[in-house]
Design a protein around this nucleic acid. Structure first.
Length: 305
DNA sequence: TTCAATGTTTAGAC
DNA sequence: GGTCTAAACATTGA
């Protein structure tokens, strides 16, 4: 479930922890999640143990210089002209533990039901050990996530980075630009428009539902039927909902936790996502849920038109 | 036993 | 090219 606010939380919390750390060792337990080079498919499963060996070899002894986000992709910058791209997909986690915390028990996967565990667990696929004894664990229950090592000079060739739409929280993502991209997709259902990473980066199922509630627009509405004021409300809702979610460190739904193992606090503020059958927090009507091209969307049939 | 679940890509249809 | 649908990836729990 990591979407923009969750990934932003991971990145901003990892940045000070990882900056200037020197990698002593990389242990790859699941080679199929590792790729080396810009042109490897995002479906990294086609890569092999040769890539995994290369990945660990190149990174050994290298220093981390920074951590950034583009859409839902985490970029770990490495001195010596490399970057590690990390995608968490649905159930990925990056957990950082100081040396003295390594035997600490934390609640991680399926956080509603699981008992606290120590890392590594059966879902730990990659372990970075730093020279000060601290560790970074990449866990992923469903194994859709991946880590891809690229040279700085190759980063322009990384397909999945180039094809993302604009960052919705950037200042230069303004109302005029938004209306322009709306006009290019007149026939799409507005929920699917919001969720398409090539149109706008970083919005998934949770936040498209929440954004549409705040904009008072039903998820199945067709883009070209939106009125001027609906377009403006939608634009405002994108900015406000995402900013508020970042402020609350994202939503811990399913498996998302912060690098410390702490939860995001936005989930309790959800108005519609995951609330089908419950009462609308605004008007008391029952929240409905429907499929929109295979994705479940929840909405209030009274508040949203 | 069947179904659905946070993301993304790809193929096929119209 | 736009748009929709289904399938694929792997796992779990309802």
């Amino acid at each position: 479930m990591p979407e923009l606010p969750e990934v932003e939380t991971v990145v901003s919390e990892l940045r000070p922890l990882l900056k200037n750390k020197v990698i002593r060792q990389v242990e790859v337990r699941s080679p199929k999640l590792i790729a080396v080079g810009p042109l490897t498919l995002s479906n990294v499963r086609k890569s092999n143990s040769v890539a995994a060996k290369k990945f660990a070899q190149i990174l050994k002894g290298k220093k981390i210089t920074g951590v950034q986000r583009r859409a839902k992709l985490i970029i770990i910058d490495i001195a010596g002209k490399f970057a590690i791209l990390v995608h968490l997909k649905m159930t990925g986690q990056l957990i950082f533990l100081e040396k003295k915390q390594l035997n600490k028990k934390i609640k991680l996967l399926n956080i509603e039901t699981f008992q606290p565990i120590t890392l590594p667990s059966k879902w730990t696929h990659v372990i970075f050990t730093f020279t000060d004894g601290s560790k970074l664990f990449f866990n992923d229950l469903r194994q859709f996530g991946y880590l891809k090592l690229v040279k700085d000079s190759e980063i322009d060739q990384v397909k999945e980075l180039n094809e993302f739409g604009p960052e919705p929280l950037k200042i230069n993502f303004a109302i005029a630009k938004f209306i322009n991209i709306l006009s290019k997709r007149p026939k799409m259902k507005v929920k699917l428009f919001l969720m398409d990473p090539k149109i706008i980066a970083g919005i998934g199922n949770i936040y498209s539902d929440e954004i549409l509630f705040f904009a008072k627009i039903r998820p199945g509405r067709i883009v070209k039927t939106l009125t001027k004021s609906e377009e403006q409300r939608l634009f405002k809702a994108i900015k406000e909902v995402l900013k508020d979610a970042v402020r609350h460190n994202g939503s811990s739904v399913g498996d998302f936790v912060r690098p410390s193992g702490a939860w995001g606090k936005y989930g309790r503020l959800h108005k519609v996502y995951g609330r089908a059958g419950l009462k609308c927090k605004v008007c008391g009507s029952i929240i409905k849920s429907m499929k929109f091209s295979g994705r479940t969307g929840s909405f209030c049939p009274v508040c949203q038109k």
